[in-house]
Computed example of a mutant assay.
Amino acid sequence: MINNSWYCEKITLCPYSRGFHLITDEITSALPQIKHVEVGLLHLMLQHTSASLTINENADPSVRRDLESFFNHTVKESSPYFTHTYEGPDDMPAHIKSSLLGCQLTIPVQRGKLALGTWQGITLGEHRDHAGPRTIIATLQGQ
């Protein structure tokens, strides 16, 4: 990349089971252009309303299990006040979890690498029991 270039890629993730999953390697593998960016930004937009993106612990898998436990405890399935239940008891809770965590991330890029902290990774929150592939639009800007 030379002088303030832009690049956009549609990344399709294979279906994941319900829970929180590290996807940093999948993102960087799909964007070899990052290696040529001295300084820039990577914006990730997950095109779904029942999953989420977050940056969190990348070393200890118990953190991801605890995140899943916390959100399942906080946003209970089959709550009697939910009316949006057309796709099952995990449907509305998945939308709430997605709204709480969000579906977008912006990460600095420095010297050809994502400028994540030592113990940070990009995490997909899959909030459905039987989700399909998930699509992320990745926009890389830098020089």
Rank of each mutant, 00 (worst) to 15 (best):
5 S>L: 11
6 W>I: 13
7 Y>R: 13
9 E>T: 15
12 T>F: 09
13 L>H: 13
16 Y>V: 04
18 R>V: 12
20 F>T: 07
21 H>E: 03
22 L>I: 14
22 L>E: 10
23 I>T: 10
25 D>R: 15
26 E>A: 15
28 T>Y: 11
29 S>A: 14
30 A>T: 02
32 P>Y: 08
33 Q>K: 13
33 Q>M: 13
34 I>E: 01
36 H>L: 10
37 V>S: 05
41 L>C: 05
42 L>R: 01
43 H>P: 00
44 L>C: 08
44 L>S: 05
45 M>C: 10
46 L>Q: 02
48 H>C: 02
48 H>Y: 02
51 A>C: 14
52 S>N: 07
53 L>M: 04
60 D>Y: 06
61 P>E: 03
61 P>M: 00
62 S>L: 05
65 R>Y: 04
68 E>T: 14
70 F>K: 08
73 H>V: 03
74 T>M: 14
75 V>R: 03
76 K>D: 01
78 S>N: 14
83 T>P: 00
83 T>L: 09
85 T>G: 00
87 E>L: 07
88 G>T: 06
89 P>C: 07
89 P>H: 06
90 D>L: 03
94 A>K: 01
94 A>C: 04
95 H>V: 02
96 I>H: 02
96 I>E: 00
100 L>C: 04
100 L>H: 03
103 C>L: 03
104 Q>P: 00
106 T>Q: 08
107 I>Y: 00
109 V>K: 06
109 V>I: 14
111 R>V: 00
111 R>C: 08
111 R>S: 13
112 G>Y: 04
112 G>P: 09
113 K>D: 03
113 K>E: 11
114 L>T: 12
115 A>D: 09
115 A>F: 13
115 A>G: 00
120 Q>N: 09
121 G>C: 04
121 G>R: 01
121 G>S: 05
124 L>T: 02
126 E>L: 11
127 H>R: 08
128 R>M: 12
129 D>P: 04
130 H>T: 14
132 G>I: 03
133 P>W: 01
134 R>V: 11
134 R>E: 11
135 T>H: 14
135 T>F: 09
